[in-house]
Design a protein around this nucleic acid. Structure first.
Lengths: 193, 193
DNA sequence: ACGGCTGGCTATCTTCATTAGCCTTATCGC
DNA sequence: GCGATAAGGCTAATGAAGATAGCCAGCCGT
């Protein structure tokens, strides 16, 4: 019996592909095993459990999402950076819906790599908001709001929530532009008095 | 063997309770059967399948969410209505996380009741936005943006995404207030020239 | 009382995650 | 080269869960 030449990396990558194809919630060891051409129990030589595999797919997704966002942010600042990162965020979620869903679904507890990857994403967001001159709790409100905005739009879109015959790209652009204006007003309010 | 006195209504209600307690993704027939005190196959006298049950829980959630939003909106308009409905939306999601998750997860295809319930929610949102004097595609952009905002914040909060030691209520209020301002600016832009 | 529908049940099948244990293939020390 | 050893496949078996078939008791209207 020839060896399949698997590795944890490979299994995680294939699992991510399965998640992208059939949906994060339908990711199963059976599907991964079939895809890589081994019997199901063989996977246990490379992963601890289905839950562990899911966590690793989540980490992979967070890392890739962070990279995409970082790449979009370099060389830009202020509104330009905001728009570019928002675009990259949505683009990643559309290209890799399974991985994207994975980034939200995980425990985030006591997993160093997971915390690291999540922190990297957060850092990009913080860097963008730096350009708006926010202070104190305003920064936290802005981070939360931006994440809510991006995630909300992207996940509703993925769930098929936007059925009206109006350009979805345009709606997204306007949402982001509106938030840009909101951030500016927050900054003004903080520095004015 | 005494009859348990079940009904489709009852099974759906108990399934909703299970979803709220253990999470939408962990809703199982086994858990529902154990909760109502019957054997698993007995449930099939009242529901067609697990998927069908999930759809019905989804409809229940949409209806209740719509009622909560409608109740919050009556007697208010403009910013007041927006803030009140946003509060009701988040409140429902916090009280019934399983049902809330259910409202997003369903197919929405060829199920009349489901479409009806979703339309009721949409109607409340449209009614609120009416007060801002938006026109044409602006209305669609606003609907999508508002849904994205509310859903994004609420689902990130439910996923444990807001860990920083800053008041989450405040962040939500500011996000909603910021969007209120954005809507006003859209309306101005449309009527100005 | 009785015939039929209704709503429980047990038994069985399938799929999937998981564990145990075998056996072959690489690889490393000599 | 060559054998020891670890690693990476496998089959077999267990248990949970969804789904189906078919039995049988209670409740109904006549």
């Amino acid at each position: 019996m020839p060896r399949a030449g698997l590795s944890t990396q490979r299994v995680v990558a294939e699992a991510a592909a399965v998640a992208d194809e059939v949906g994060w919630e339908r990711l199963s060891l059976a599907a991964v095993a079939a895809r890589v051409g081994v019997r199901l129990p063989s996977l246990y030589k490379h992963i601890a459990s289905l839950d562990a595999l899911r966590t690793e797919v989540s980490v992979l997704g967070l890392r890739q999402l962070g990279q995409a966002m970082t790449a979009a942010a370099v060389g830009r600042s202020g509104s330009d950076a905001l728009v570019a990162v928002a675009e990259a965020y949505r683009g990643y979620a559309q290209e890799h819906p399974g991985r994207y869903a994975a980034t939200l679904a995980a425990p985030l507890k006591d997993n160093h790599e997971h915390v690291q990857a999540a922190a990297a994403v957060l850092r990009v967001v913080e860097a963008i908001l730096d350009g708006y001159g926010l202070t104190g709790d305003d920064t936290v409100d802005a981070i939360r709001s931006l994440r809510a905005l991006l995630h909300g739009f992207v996940s509703l879109e993925a769930a098929g929530g936007f059925r009206m015959p109006v350009d979805v790209d345009r709606s997204y652009d306007r949402l982001v532009a509106g938030f840009d204006a909101t951030l500016r007003s927050w900054a003004e309010g903080a520095t004015a008095p």
